Simulated scan of single mutants.
Amino acid sequence: GYDYTEFDCCPLGNNIEIKSDRRPNWAWFIRVNQNMEPILFKDKFFNWPAFTLTRPEKKYQPRKLSFSTPTTTNVVEPKHKCCKKDLSAELNLFPVDIQTDMIGNVPQQQELILECVSLGRGTGDTIHDEDGLPVKVMSLDVQCFVIEESGDRIELNEMDKNFLCSAESYYIRWKYRLTRISRCLKTGAESRYSVEQHGGRDRVCYFVWQGKDARNTQRGITALNAIEKLRVEGASQTYVEHGQEDPIFLRIFQGSLVIQNGKRKQPNNCGKYRMFMLQDTLPEERFMIELECSFRNLRSRLSYVFVNPGHSSKIYLWHGCKT
């Protein structure tokens, strides 16, 4: 039997009693022999002893040729000898240096290079221009366009451009500027006249965002419309995949981006809650993405938002215990 009275719920299931004298019908009862333990059994123990693996190895001797007569050649068949070989050397088992390989090994962020300049993390970040001088990335204007199945292009307003749907494709026109930074002679800090006196030229970049559930025809029409625009303006273009948004793309929306499932004009299912996961590295890169409303998607280091617009006006915010 089993006894889980010390816990708040039974790990075997919600509809199963906390204490019982008999196991459930689906519970396994397996006999395990010594030195024949399966991997599933060994993983239950933290310090399971690891034995040295050995196997027989064949060592061949070089061939010996005999030139007793010019017409005949005697070839001695190779002889092999079985010996035990330690497989630990082949497996290359060695402890991991936590400080060097894990804590100190910080992955490098992906760089977006536009017009021979790496934009760093995007809006508000300080980078270096073509001449090596410090400049700041400033966002001037953001326009979001969606292409419907009929081929019509629709520009979204200020409220709707922050919502992207997984069954649609968009292209975002981002107008930015690289501003030279001037320093104050007394304090060495950034001067407040940097933007007014050392403003650079305006630049344009088109981001083509394609949802994972969008049709191929809609993806192609969106890409063609973006190409026509950038040819006229001489702008740059980059593709953004659903679920792999880089910091530059996220900073365009200033922490107000929401990625939801379905289409924009799709009717909401009344009575069903929608689950959104909150992700952020910095406050400017915060965004929410919709997931299937299930307890399997909950993580202890993240926060989630639950909404039901057709049934209730309340919003539930769930924080993990390690956030």
Rank of each mutant, 00 (worst) to 15 (best):
R219Y: 02
V258A: 09
G211N: 12
I259L: 15
K212S: 14
A214H: 06
S236F: 01
V240C: 08
D213E: 10
C205W: 05
T238L: 10
F249R: 04
P247E: 00
V204E: 01
Q237N: 06
I248P: 01
S191Q: 01
Y273N: 10
I252T: 04
D213A: 05
I259W: 01
M275C: 13
W209A: 02
N225Y: 15
N225Q: 08
E233M: 13
F249H: 08
I252Y: 01
K212M: 15
Q266S: 14
L230H: 03
V258T: 11
R251S: 14
R203L: 13
S194V: 00
N216Y: 09
S191C: 01
G211F: 06
H198E: 00
M277F: 07
R203S: 13
I252G: 02
E245Y: 01
A223V: 05
S194E: 00
R264I: 05
L278N: 11
G255T: 05
F253I: 02
N269S: 12
Q244S: 15
G234F: 07
H198M: 01
V232F: 02
L250F: 03
I248A: 02
Q266K: 06
R215D: 04
A226R: 07
S194G: 02
L224H: 07
H242V: 11
I227D: 14
R201T: 01
R251G: 10
E241T: 11
R274G: 10
V240T: 11
P247D: 00
Q266P: 11
E245L: 10
L257C: 01
K229D: 15
S256K: 13
A214K: 09
G211P: 09
E228H: 06
R264N: 04
S236W: 00
R201A: 00
F276I: 12
T217R: 09
S191E: 03
Q237A: 06
Q218T: 13
A223Q: 08
V204T: 03
D280M: 05
P267K: 10
R219L: 13
H242C: 14
P247N: 00
L224R: 07
E233V: 15
K229S: 12
V258W: 07
Q279A: 13
Q266F: 07
L278Y: 06
T238Y: 08
R231M: 14
R231C: 07
Q197G: 07
T281Q: 08
V204D: 00
S256Y: 11
D213W: 05
N268G: 13
Y273S: 14
K265R: 08
K272N: 09
R215H: 10
N261G: 04
V240N: 08
H198Q: 00
G220F: 06
L230R: 09
R215T: 15
Y193A: 00
L230I: 04
R203D: 15
T281F: 09
D213T: 04
L224I: 11
G271M: 07
H198C: 01
E196C: 02
P267I: 06
Q197H: 11
F249I: 12
M277C: 14
R274A: 13
D246Q: 06
R203H: 15
G271Q: 03
V232A: 03
R219K: 14
Y206L: 07
A214W: 03
N216D: 14
N216L: 11
S236E: 14
K272C: 11
D280S: 11
K263M: 03
